[in-house]
Amino acid sequence: MGMREVASAAGVSVSTVANVLSRPAIVAPATVERVRRAIDEVGYVPNGPARQLRGRPSPIVGSVTLDLANPFHAEVNRGIEDRLAEAGCVLLTCSTDLRPATETRLLRVLEQQGVRGIIISPADAAQLPAISRRGTPVVLLDHPKERLDLCAVAVDDVLGGRLAGEHLRARGHRRIAYLGATVDPAPVARRRAGLRAAVGEIIDVRVDMHPPSLGAAAAAAAERIVALAPTAVVCLNDTAALGLLDGLAALGVRVPADLSVVGYDDLPFARRLAPALTTVRQPTYQLGQAAAELLLDEERPGHTHREVRFQPSLVVRSSTTYIDEHRLTG
Rank of each mutant, 00 (worst) to 15 (best):
R271A: 15
A7P: 05
C235A: 08
T329N: 07
D184L: 13
V183D: 14
G62L: 09
A222C: 06
P29V: 02
G2D: 00
D40C: 08
R169K: 13
N77F: 01
T182Y: 05
R224S: 11
P312E: 00
A274P: 06
V153C: 08
D82M: 11
D67Y: 00
A38G: 05
V6M: 05
R56E: 08
E81F: 07
A181I: 09
I131E: 00
T320R: 00
V253H: 00
R37T: 11
P283M: 06
A126T: 11
S58M: 01
Q52F: 11
E33Y: 08
T65L: 12
T279D: 01
T16N: 02
T16V: 10
V262Y: 07
I131R: 00
G160P: 10
P144N: 12
I60V: 13
C89E: 09
V76L: 03
A227S: 13
S63F: 08
S95Q: 14
P46E: 09
E298H: 15
A10M: 09
A125C: 04
I26L: 07
V233E: 04
R34V: 01
L141W: 02
V32I: 08
R56Y: 15
L159S: 11
N19T: 06
P256Q: 01
P137N: 07
L179G: 09
A25C: 08
G263Y: 04
A250C: 05
H305Y: 10
I119K: 00
A257I: 01
T329G: 04
L251I: 03
R83N: 09
G165P: 04
P137E: 02
V207P: 05
A28S: 12
L148M: 06
G263E: 05
V205N: 11
A291H: 02
Q282M: 07
A193N: 08
A221V: 03
R190Q: 14
I120G: 01
I39L: 03
L328R: 14
L106I: 15
L168F: 10
R36S: 11
R105D: 13
E5D: 14
D142C: 03
A222I: 07
G330I: 04
A186D: 10
E146R: 13
V226R: 01
E299P: 11
G288A: 09
G330Y: 01
V12W: 02
R34I: 06
N237T: 07
G200K: 00
S213A: 14
V255A: 06
E293Q: 15
G79F: 12
V199F: 01
T329D: 08
G135P: 09
D97T: 09
V183T: 15
E223V: 10
T93D: 03
D40T: 13
R23L: 04
V138M: 07
N77G: 07
T136M: 08
V183M: 12
G172Q: 01
T104M: 12
A257Q: 12
A74R: 03
A69G: 14
R190K: 13
R56V: 01
A249V: 02
L107T: 06
D149G: 05
G117Q: 03
G43Q: 02
R300P: 07
A85P: 05
D67F: 00
G135S: 03
S318F: 08
S95I: 10
V226L: 02
A101G: 12
R134T: 10
V138H: 02
V61N: 02
